[in-house]
Design a binder for these strands. Structure first.
Ligand code: MN
Ligand code: MN
Ligand code: ZN
Ligand code: ZN
Lengths: 142, 142
DNA sequence: CTCCAATTGAAAATGATTGTCAATTTAAGC
DNA sequence: GCTTAAATTGACAATCATTTTCAATTGGAG
């Protein structure tokens, strides 16, 4: 519920308006977990709200990313995916190339070593992306 | 020179043919270091060999990746980039979001921790990708 | 050399994303 | 509530990298 308010506040600060469509898309996004493509969310919303267009879903997902409610992800394929992000926390991904499963993990030790690498190169990290591709426990080591 | 033979051997094992175009594209790829998009390599080759088509460059880069001479990379933007890869070694990237500079690094400690994460999840890693985005020394910390 | 499969280059197809624009909706100001 | 300017919407077209198609050409095994 405060998520929804966070989005409305963001729209206000940007001089944008709350609309019926944006509320519907936000609701659908918050309900469905996981790593959704625009297409996937659009198809799901269309079942209950056939009037809402693809472009509006696309534009709203970008707004959600701007508001900090969603984060965009780019895995192997070409399409952008979005997932909910809860403020400060960060996580990376294990991706099974056999069944497509996506596991999430956090590892403070790795993040610290990333900072060390950055320091060694005089680099200031703003974000990062770590993806481990392979086979999940269910699919076995090939 | 043995690189070129490695590619010819790969083509043979796949029942494919060595062609004038593939040799030219291979030469151009080996000469120019860095992280090249298909477009960039195509434009460069076109200067000396206007007859070679974009599709052929594209197809040959995929062959080079298959042969192990090239590795495909996907950074923030939408296009695929290729870089030479020398057999076993592996590296990851620091990418400056201000000037576009790409620095390379290797860190055995991080790789070991990645294995630890995988073990914790019963996962078998086949490949990985680590990209640190931020500002390089030249561009300053914003 | 012959001949068939592989290759090439131009052009079209694809697929995700982004832009356009007339009609509609929002919300601020009265 | 009513008016009104600005933002939004949805259908559709445009864009961009990538991939496919296909007729003409070429490689190389026999
Ligand atoms: Mn995730
Ligand atoms: Mn590199
Ligand atoms: Zn799996
Ligand atoms: Zn820089």
């Amino acid at each position: 519920m405060e998520r929804k308010q966070q989005f409305r506040d963001y729209l206000l600060t940007q001089g944008l308006k709350s609309t019926r469509q944006r509320e519907i898309i936000l609701d659908a996004f918050l309900q469905s977990g996981g790593h959704l493509s625009t297409e996937e969310l659009y198809l799901q919303i269309r079942q209950q709200h056939p009037g809402i267009g693809y472009a509006t879903v696309h534009r709203t997902l970008k707004l959600l990313a701007g508001s900090g409610l969603a984060e965009s992800r780019h895995f192997g394929d070409r399409q952008t995916r979005y997932e909910q992000c809860s403020g400060e926390d960060h996580h990376d991904h294990l991706i099974c190339t056999a069944c497509g499963a996506i596991l999430e993990f956090e590892d403070g030790d790795i993040e610290r070593l990333q900072q060390r690498v950055a320091r060694q190169h005089g680099f200031h990290i703003l974000s990062h992306r770590l993806e481990l591709y392979g086979r999940c426990a269910k699919c076995g080591p090939e």
